[in-house]
Write a protein that binds this DNA or RNA. Structure first.
Lengths: 153, 153
DNA sequence: CTAGGTGCAAAAGGTTTGCGGTTAA
DNA sequence: TTAACCGCAAACCTTTTGCACCTAG
């Protein structure tokens, strides 16, 4: 369903070293937020992360979850994924990849980009532009919803 | 700077026919909003569209601008472009294309995709997914800001 | 010890909605 | 004529912020 990348271990290491050494404190809240994200790779919204983190640490606040998610994003462990005006979704997959969102069930999956270099050949921009970040996203129906949509007719 | 597509005339026709025949009323407000968008192809936000439309029609309201933009988007004449959590930008370019945003001046430009088919070869998704929409976006520095950033150092 | 983080509550910012009056077709 | 649309103001929802207290390093 969702591309498995098994970078959990790698990511844990990245957290311990990057956060601790980069001038960022390794607080219980940040760890819980990151754990909540790794636990279920379903691109949860900030509120969903909050609810999950709350189970393990009932005193955590929503504002802290937002702050932690921003810190983790700055550190590079987390990517913030936006589809239209909906709430931001968060993704602990540091590899370059795209995203697919099902317009029916609103689930978000990672999309592999085997040839990242090919992507940069697709678009044309005068060469005095400096591109620092590129991303792409797809929308449509996931297999479950294709079936469900056909049944509904 | 921005890819010129000279589809103004085509677009006008599309508005007159599509909106009028698709069960949508051709109101003064919708026309002004669309005109404001065609006038300056700089991907304005809803508030910017509002300010421009207001010059020609002082009684128009912001809520109406939002409503008109949504209608025009549904009709297919306008595309809504989102970068992160910033205000939505609106684009009257119906051709398939991507977007570039300068992280320094926040201007948004269209990005040509000469080979749209090549884009769909870049990503891999199991074939029981149905993809209805794909888009990509770039971030970086526009030529003006590359120069300005160098001067500042 | 102290810079940086947390929790709370309040505010911000963009967008949507409800409603009575208006208008395109 | 009348369903669709407009203007206004109030509501909504996600995210950010100010401040007093707390804690990792």
């Amino acid at each position: 369903m969702c591309a498995e990348l098994s970078l959990d271990d790698h990511a844990h290491t990245a957290y311990d070293t990057t956060v601790a050494s980069g001038g960022f404190r390794l607080t219980r809240q940040r760890r819980e937020v990151y754990e909540a994200l790794l636990e279920t790779r379903d691109h949860p919204s900030a509120v969903q992360v909050f609810m999950r983190a709350q189970k393990r640490m009932p005193t955590i606040s929503l504002a802290t979850v937002y702050n932690c998610l921003e810190t983790l994003t700055q550190v590079g462990l987390v990517r913030q994924v936006n589809f239209d005006r909906g709430p931001s979704r968060f993704c602990p997959n540091a590899h370059p990849h795209g995203h697919f969102m099902c317009t029916r069930c609103h689930h978000v999956h990672d999309v592999d980009v085997p040839d990242a270099a090919a992507l940069s050949r697709v678009w044309q921009l005068p060469n005095n532009y400096v591109v620092t970040q590129s991303e792409f996203s797809l929308r449509g129906l996931c297999p479950e919803c294709v079936v469900a949509a056909n049944d509904a007719e």
